[in-house]
Amino acid sequence: MYTDSHCHITCDRLYARVDEIIQNIQTHHVTSCMIMSTNQTEFERAKVIKEQYPFFKLAFGWFPGDAKEMTDAHLTYLENEIQAGHLDCLGEIGLDYHWDTSFKDAQKQLFVKQLEIANTYHLPVSIHMRDATKDCMDLLRQHAHTRIIFHCFSGSPETMQEALKMDSVISFAGPITFKNSRQGPACVKACPADRILSETDSPYLTPVPHRGHENEPMYVRYVAEKIAELKDMEVPSLCAQIEKNFAHVFA
């Protein structure tokens, strides 16, 4: 039983073959899976999928790169969907300074507003933190009062230890299987097994041995197998622990 805690199967790149992807999820024993949506179109698609396949968890949040376009109406839509019972998690939200640092303040304001919404409705949050570690961690310490998933963690072991001091789990993706990955494997080894999640972030970051191909949830097995190797655990035991960790996020 495999867990993909973060996949984008309703994005345009994957949605064209979503029926095949869901069939692959079932065939390859992915029994826990959370669909991430970063815009309204993706989320509306995800809701339809969950009506047919209730085992999916759904996450939605406004991405930091869109902060300049955000209005009160966007936040109202988010709250309405929460109140309607359509969200299991608020995310992925956070900060991203990789491409453009000209609107950091807008990103921070959007991030804090969404953390406060998560607090109000007692929803876990999935965190995107790219080239913005200090600001993101500072805001989480100040404003996050629900469970935290550090999505596709790529920070240092020291940053991970700070993250673990929060009410958090650390999610690892395909990069831990890459030959040039150093911090990822070190973090896996240092992270307690009961605080680990596996993910694909599909369609991105396809793990070895399928690197170079489009990613999808069925490939999460390679992430889980690498985590088990690094933790010196049997794969079934590791997968059972990850599934337990995933369920606990929503308890």
Rank of each mutant, 00 (worst) to 15 (best):
K113Q: 14
V125Q: 05
S202Y: 05
N24Q: 12
V249D: 06
G91L: 09
C152A: 12
T10H: 07
G174Q: 03
R195M: 03
H210S: 02
T71E: 14
V208T: 12
G94D: 08
A132E: 05
I242Y: 08
T3S: 11
D96G: 07
A163E: 03
A163I: 08
L238Y: 08
I148K: 00
F63V: 12
K134H: 14
H86R: 05
I149G: 00
D4K: 00
L78E: 09
G85N: 13
I227V: 12
H122M: 09
Q109D: 13
C239E: 13
T120S: 13
S37E: 15
Q26I: 12
V18G: 03
T3L: 11
N80M: 14
L14M: 12
G65N: 13
V48D: 11
R17S: 10
G94M: 02
D88W: 01
Q107F: 06
V48Q: 13
C11R: 09
D100N: 15
Q183N: 10
H86S: 14
Y2I: 01
A193R: 04
Q107C: 08
A16G: 12
E158N: 11
T41C: 14
V235W: 02
Q52R: 14
I227E: 10
V208I: 12
S154A: 13
H143C: 00
R130V: 01
G184T: 01
L123P: 06
H128L: 10
T177Y: 09
S102C: 06
T10N: 10
F55Q: 04
R195G: 05
P124R: 12
Y53C: 04
H122F: 07
T31A: 13
E162P: 03
K226W: 08
K189C: 00
S237G: 04
I149P: 00
D72A: 15
A67K: 00
G61L: 06
F63D: 05
E243P: 01
S202W: 01
Q83A: 10
G85P: 07
Q52G: 03
W62R: 09
P217S: 09
M160S: 01
G91I: 05
G174A: 04
A106Y: 00
M218H: 08
P236D: 11
D138K: 04
F111P: 00
G174I: 11
H143S: 01
R45L: 14
K108P: 02
P207A: 07
K226E: 15
I196Q: 07
D131R: 09
P64L: 06
R211S: 03
D105E: 15
F60P: 02
F103Q: 10
H122S: 12
P192I: 10
D131T: 04
Q26E: 14
N245C: 12
S171M: 12
Q52K: 14
D201Q: 07
Y15D: 07
H29D: 15
M166I: 04
A163F: 08
L164W: 04
D105N: 13
I242E: 08
H86I: 05
D100T: 09
I127V: 15
A240F: 10
L95Q: 06
H8P: 09
F55D: 04
E51S: 11
T206W: 11
V188M: 02
L78K: 05
K189L: 02
